[in-house]
Design a protein around this nucleic acid. Sequence first.
DNA 1: GTAATAATTGTCATATTTACAATTATTTTT
DNA 2: AAAAATAATTGTAAATATGACAATTATTAC
Lengths: 234, 234
Amino acid sequence: MTKYQNQTRLLVAVDCIVFGFDGQHLKILLIKRGFEPKRNHWSLMGGFIEPNESADKAAIRILKRLTGLDGVYLEQFHTFSEPDRDPIERTLSIAYFALIDIHQYEKQISDEYHPEWFPLNKEPDLIFDHQQMVAMAKAKLRYKAALHPLLLELLPPKFTLPLLQNLFEDVYETTFDKRNFSRKILSTSLLLKQKDKDKSNSRKGAFYYKLDKKHYQKNFHKFLHFIPNPNGLV
Amino acid sequence: MTKYQNQTRLLVAVDCIVFGFDGQHLKILLIKRGFEPKRNHWSLMGGFIEPNESADKAAIRILKRLTGLDGVYLEQFHTFSEPDRDPIERTLSIAYFALIDIHQYEKQISDEYHPEWFPLNKEPDLIFDHQQMVAMAKAKLRYKAALHPLLLELLPPKFTLPLLQNLFEDVYETTFDKRNFSRKILSTSLLLKQKDKDKSNSRKGAFYYKLDKKHYQKNFHKFLHFIPNPNGLV
DNA sequence: GTAATAATTGTCATATTTACAATTATTTTT
DNA sequence: AAAAATAATTGTAAATATGACAATTATTAC
């Protein structure tokens, strides 16, 4: 059979909002766009979807090219389709956000893009509708991380409770009581206390914890309450 | 400036999962596809995105054509992009779900599509990846309706608590205690008790309630708890 | 050995959730 | 007119979760 007649065909891109946490602040990774229009303006990392490549595959490819990382948390969150969002030619963008351990990230992998980490709310001006994408990604992260242990994806394999609390406090721009915070986090049975401590921030040192992968899937929905566990998938 | 060179351009469609509630069961509206391939097979209502039309606009247009309805709850939830999802030509689909008052729906509007309501879990076989779309829409609805008063969008302007409870019980395939259910629902301050009753289902009659639109926006996030209100937007 | 520093831990009051059954309003039947 | 039938409405007590509070502990530096 032949193709669909008389229909418009569009360019389709994927853009990635890459989140990282340096111990102090939640940050996103931006690059300097390498081609016209808007060459050398700050931008999200993205690229056109290739023939025979799904959007998920494209996002994985682009993330790998930017960070050198594979198998990190990556989630499609919205497709942007305003006709004039790209001034050169109509282009759809399927937006993803990624949560990576900032220490795994290797800058030199993508030096050609001049990538830099920016704290949220302190990003430079971005091209097209990328500002809106960042805002929506941040909103989605805050929403979902309030219900699921998502922020653990931003931490190294071994981390301390004070570090985790710093992360939550930065993401939600607030402070938490230490006692209540640790009680709530530990009640999820998601963390395994280690024998060793991180001594870099205090004399006493803070115990390391690891993610308990056995309980991770099972307790991912732990926080919901109207319906105990509505079901998988978001 | 000229266009982007050497990039693939794709067809882009919008597909709508339309949910309705007939008082007993949550249902979705399906049509018989009117053109090849798969003419006369059951399908979601959809259509190609037009030049100068955003995906949101396309979804609104398509929903109007199918149901005659405007201004109903409509949300983009996922973009499907597997290269071979349409056997004729690669087509991206941006999927939306809509929540409508089934009584407002006028069948004759779209008789040419032979639309029919099917209870969930009893849909016929669907074309392409539409089965997967329905599954994901249902999961998303269950997830979100556990956290927000979303299901109210499926009810007529005046409804009773027993009806609302039926809806929840059908969506979550469970039963709730009447006392606890009404206490929880009423504690949201979202419902306004009316003076009149619906006598069609019992001798005593059940009081009607209406949505309190003043409190709707404000209390939409009422159910979250780890972080009181992570922020707007989902 | 003492001071300094940040991590760790506990309790009580309050709010929320859960489990559970009697009463009420109305219509139909006798 | 009284009684029966039906579904809607309402309350309470126990268990659990949350929120607000500060003292103690482990370690290093002096």
